[in-house]
Design a protein around this nucleic acid. Sequence first.
DNA 1: ACCAGTACTGACTAATTAGTCAGGTACTCA
DNA 2: TGAGTACCTGACTAATTAGTCAGTACTGGT
Lengths: 125, 125
Amino acid sequence: MATSARRGPYFCGIDAAMDVVAGKWKSLILWELHHYGTRRFAELRRGLPGVSEKMLIQHLREMEEDGLVHREVYREVPPKVEYSLTEHGVSLNAALAPLGKWGTERMRRIGAEKVSVNDAVTVRR
Amino acid sequence: MATSARRGPYFCGIDAAMDVVAGKWKSLILWELHHYGTRRFAELRRGLPGVSEKMLIQHLREMEEDGLVHREVYREVPPKVEYSLTEHGVSLNAALAPLGKWGTERMRRIGAEKVSVNDAVTVRR
DNA sequence: ACCAGTACTGACTAATTAGTCAGGTACTCA
DNA sequence: TGAGTACCTGACTAATTAGTCAGTACTGGT
């Protein structure tokens, strides 16, 4: 089982929270959905420069399983799928806010750059 | 470079914070050091049931590089090394508190078990 | 003398996570 | 007719992260 799902046992709450947020793009997806409310698959892909479709879908599926995002499929052609945060997703995002603030502060401290759209296509590590 | 160090560019603050917290045991180390104030290497090892010495050292070194923990070496025999949180480590821990609360709530929701000392030696995933 | 405790290092392997790329359906527009 | 958009799936590979295990130097206790 290469993908998803641990769901305990956990050492503590942070451990449990990390389990659902860990993944290269998950926090970014959370932020996008929080910021825009509702986003289609292709919109998310464009909003997360550098993400591969495979990972985007995989993360979205895991987050759906974990009850963080809601997936609304419209039986149309061409297909239309809308993603949005559930109540739990919204509260997780709120819980992440202080961490985001700390991170922003850290970026200022170490003088880290923000990724630009041009950088994003190239390597990140 | 298998170990450590990305340090930007980041997409956002959460991305930057995640960079220093990601790692199987880092949040737990943070919690231990926060709880006890100062801990020796062997105390940490015992406090984190299941951790391998290699990962513990590796994580401690990375966190030291990232300015989260302070390493105090006493030139004695047998060797004595004390780890403690720096100011930044303390503030990071504070920023993680809401996330920990969310995680605890999630554990209650999904009925996840807390790891017991007996479990810890065996597999975790 | 021998074993345990301390704080490690380093080689090697296993497991996990992410990326690439090809394909698939069902349409619309030129 | 051919290209393009939308939302995917699946096979295969690369990169990253974690685990195992052996070994070091020194000492205190039995």
